[in-house]
């Protein structure tokens, strides 16, 4: 009983973060269904690393450890990063990426609420620049590669780097559908020819398109429970669709259809879970539209003309830098200063 208001809505940062984490579950479930349980290992590894790094950094910074560990924000970073890394990546890759995300991208900037960049995307950027080879060996949906590993063999590979005799990494993994598309376009093949390859499904990559659908369901839950507003997902996916549609209409042999872009790579995950990170995205609705449209433009440019297979992470980081400027120039009019009477 110190000052008004004396009542408050029963809500907390921890609950918001938890709901976002729960919204990832449909996507993860479909991930496991199509690609096996290895992803759960990286999620667990990332979670443990994130909590340990967070605790250590809070201790170094002389901040209370309990309330910040319980806010679930480190866990959310861990899950998002784990979902961006190939499940078969060696254990230390997950650990290094997560530790960097939490220690450097989050805690050194001041911890919860103070990081200008999305920590998970900083972690991802560090990994793809430092360990590009490890970051491109993805699990294939069942039945699409020469040999498949049992879960025990996968665990053995993740933790010791040892494959069963007579198998190479290339034999058990593949590039992402976006990566494959890019490589084959460089080989002067047409989009139509490439999409006939067995790794492609109806909308994007086989399996991965279903995972994207899972994330879409989770994202709709976030919208319905008003944890995120519609501005960023709609502007991001809408802009990506429009940009891809323009290129596709002009030259369909070299530019893949817009729906493929939406359901490939991290577009859906980015639209609902990554770009919407409140800390590193704009606070004004108009700003959110600009931010998301800019991210969509960069995503497309990096995917189609850039050097990386997917562009969501770099697009996010580049737009994160612009947030203070965007917010400054998109301030809404205050009550009584609207200049118009209706």
């Amino acid at each position: 009983m110190f000052f008004s208001p004396f009542i408050s809505k029963p809500d907390s940062v921890a609950q918001i973060m938890l709901k976002v984490i729960l919204a990832l579950i449909p996507g993860i479930a479909l991930y496991v269904w199509y690609f096996g349980p290895a992803i759960l290992v990286s999620i667990t590894l990332a979670s443990i690393t994130a909590l340990a790094t967070e605790a250590a950094m809070l201790k170094l910074r002389n901040r209370p450890i309990g309330p910040f560990l319980k806010d679930n924000s480190a866990l959310l970073t861990a899950w998002l990063l784990a979902l961006s890394i190939p499940p078969l990546a060696p254990w230390w890759l997950v650990v290094v990426g997560t530790a960097f995300a939490i220690a450097i991208a989050k805690q050194l900037y001041g911890g919860l609420g103070n990081n200008p960049f999305n920590p998970a995307m900083v972690g991802y950027a560090v990994l793809i620049i430092s360990f590009p080879v490890h970051m491109t060996h993805w699990l294939a949906p069942q039945g699409l590669v020469l040999a498949e590993l049992s879960f025990a063999q996968q665990l053995q590979y993740i933790f010791s780097g040892v494959l069963p005799p007579s198998l190479t990494l290339d034999a058990i993994s593949m590039a992402t559908p976006l990566d494959t598309l890019k490589t084959h376009l460089h080989l002067e093949e047409s989009v139509q020819q490439i999409l006939n390859m067995p790794i492609y499904g109806h909308l994007g990559g086989q399996g991965s398109e279903m995972v994207a659908l899972g994330f879409l369901i989770g994202g709709l839950y976030l919208l319905a429970s008003r944890i995120i507003s519609w501005h960023i997902p709609v502007a991001y996916l809408g802009s990506l669709f429009i940009i891809a549609a323009i290129f596709h209409l002009v030259d369909p042999t070299h530019y893949v259809a817009p729906l493929f872009h939406l359901f490939s790579g991290a577009a859906i995950l980015g639209a609902f879970f990554i770009l919407t990170d409140p800390v590193s995205s704009p606070t004004t609705n108009k700003g959110r539209l600009i931010f998301a449209a800019g991210a969509a433009f960069l995503t497309y440019m990096i995917r189609v003309f850039g050097g990386f297979p997917d562009g969501v992470a770099f697009a996010t980081l580049l737009m994160n830098i612009s947030v203070p400027l965007i917010v400054l120039y998109t301030q809404p009019k205050v009550f009584g200063k609207k200049g118009k009477q209706s």
Partner: peptide, 16 residues
């Protein structure tokens, strides 16, 4: 806890 810029306050502010 620190502000996470969730803008729930913006959504409810009667003075915009």
């Amino acid at each position: 806890l620190p502000c996470i810029r969730c803008t729930r306050c913006v959504e409810v502010c009667p003075a915009d």
